[in-house]
Design a protein around this nucleic acid. Structure first.
Length: 420
DNA sequence: TCTGGGGTCCTAGGACCC
DNA sequence: TCTGGGGTCCTAGGACCC
């Protein structure tokens, strides 16, 4: 048996941890650059605010109902996530952190337990310990645990916990679930499935998995089996990333090469930091830039380039050099750029590399210097020491109009309590 | 005026090998 | 007139997830 535990309206719930004044009020959290709605409190959902909706298109609703609006604060959400995950891991030795707000627990050692009661206990402890409301779905496969989680949220009597004891008993409920709400079935496949008469989770569970594999892919065939109660998707170890991406939309359009270069240099520096923090080396880098494709009157341009490093590296200076070199090749004058990004490619883990007798490894991989850099910036704050090419104009800076304090990760932003 | 930012896996097709 | 059979590796594109 598996449990899927996820945090309700996670980013909103994080904002509420330190700000009880917004409990019970409509709250939304925005994507980077304050663009789209990416988290909504139940009250905001009830007012008709849709997921992924651009803010400027629901400004009226926000104003009319005095909805609280927050820019996303990943330092805060990341830290709270770590605490939630740590507490949840104390309830089973087998787990898989699936996303910032979701974890699977393996419950194979709990065969004689009342899992629903255990779920309620877990739920209470997370709420009490961290003020985080969670929903818990329990089932014989990960896909059914996901579905159970869906019922845990929607059923008024479930108290946040729903258990699917076996796949046969749950069949009547599967008839109520549209096929596109199944984990692993996205929009494209749901259209194709509906075309051939498969409309509900029950319909899909009744399919022959060989047929589905032929018509779609092994992935969907696995989903069919999982719906039938045959577990095919195991808990996975946390694997290091294979690629690392850093990209941002600009607050306003950028035209100057020097400004774009500054942005790309900042993204590359940040990507290199992430790379070193997971103890990997990158084989190459991809750089991309693009104009605002929503703007129908501007002339459009979008391009990318991939470059290979001479040898694998985590040296910010080398990575920066290639990032700028790539940018030079794809940059064109006279466009209004809206977004840029870099991706470090084909990462190698554990710093096990093939040396090259023609390349001076000390130049390519200056670990001592990078360690010093990371330590200084770790101790005294981000960008205490930075590369000149990262600049100071920040013409490309994203919008971030209403960001809450980083209560957990910045000394000067700790919660202040006033006594009367 | 304003529209996010990360990831993964699978498959088909082409280039190449013997 | 007729032209095999077995592989691997790489890449781009498309699907999915949060």
């Amino acid at each position: 048996m598996f449990a899927l535990i996820d945090c309700n309206n996670f980013y909103v719930s994080c904002e509420r941890v330190f700000n009880p004044r917004i409990d019970g009020k409509p709250v939304i959290v925005l994507s980077n650059n304050d663009g789209c709605v990416i988290a909504r409190s139940n009250e905001a959902k009830a007012l008709g605010i849709r997921m992924g909706h651009p803010l400027y298109q629901c400004k009226d609703l926000v104003k009319k109902h005095k909805i609280f609006v927050y820019s996303s604060n990943y330092a805060l959400y990341g830290d709270i996530s770590n605490r939630v995950m740590k507490l949840l891991q104390s309830y089973s030795p087998d787990f898989e952190i699936y996303s910032i707000d979701e974890i699977f627990l393996g419950l194979s050692g709990f065969s004689n337990w009342d899992l629903t009661e255990y779920g309620k206990l877990i739920r209470k402890s997370i709420l009490l310990g961290l003020k985080m409301p969670v929903s818990i779905g329990i089932g014989p496969t990960k896909t059914l645990a996901k579905l159970a989680n869906h019922f845990a949220k929607s059923s008024p009597t479930a108290e946040g916990v729903f258990e699917i004891k076996n796949a046969i008993l749950v069949q009547p409920l599967l008839k109520l679930i549209p096929v596109d709400e199944i984990w692993g079935v996205g929009r494209q496949w749901s259209y194709r499935l509906k075309d051939i008469g498969i409309k509900t989770a029950y319909d899909l569970s009744a399919c022959n998995h060989y047929e589905i594999k032929k018509k779609f892919s092994v992935i969907l065939a696995r989903t069919v089996l999982e719906l039938q109660g045959i577990s095919c998707i195991a808990l996975e170890e946390m694997a290091p990333r294979k690629n690392i991406m850093v990209s941002r939309s600009f607050g306003s359009p950028v035209t100057l090469y020097s400004d774009i270069r500054e942005a790309v240099a900042n993204f590359a520096t940040r990507a290199a930091e992430k790379l070193r923090s997971q103890n990997s080396l990158a084989t190459g880098i991809m750089v991309f830039i693009r104009t605002n494709h929503f703007n129908k009157t501007d002339s459009q341009y979008s391009n990318s380039i991939s470059l290979k490093f001479p040898i694998e590296t985590d040296n910010a200076m080398v990575i920066l050099k290639y990032a700028v070199e790539g940018l030079q090749k794809i940059f064109r004058e006279k466009y209004r750029y809206k977004k840029a990004g870099v991706m470090l490619l084909d990462l190698i883990h554990g710093r096990v590399t093939q040396p090259d007798i023609f390349i001076d490894d000390k130049v390519m991989n200056n670990h001592n210097l990078m360690n010093a850099l990371d330590k200084i910036n770790g101790k005294y704050g981000k960008q205490t020491v930075q590369f000149a090419v990262c600049g100071y104009r920040k013409a490309w800076k994203s919008h971030q109009e209403n960001i809450s304090p980083s209560y957990m990760t910045q000394w000067d932003e700790l919660l202040v309590v006033y006594a009367n």
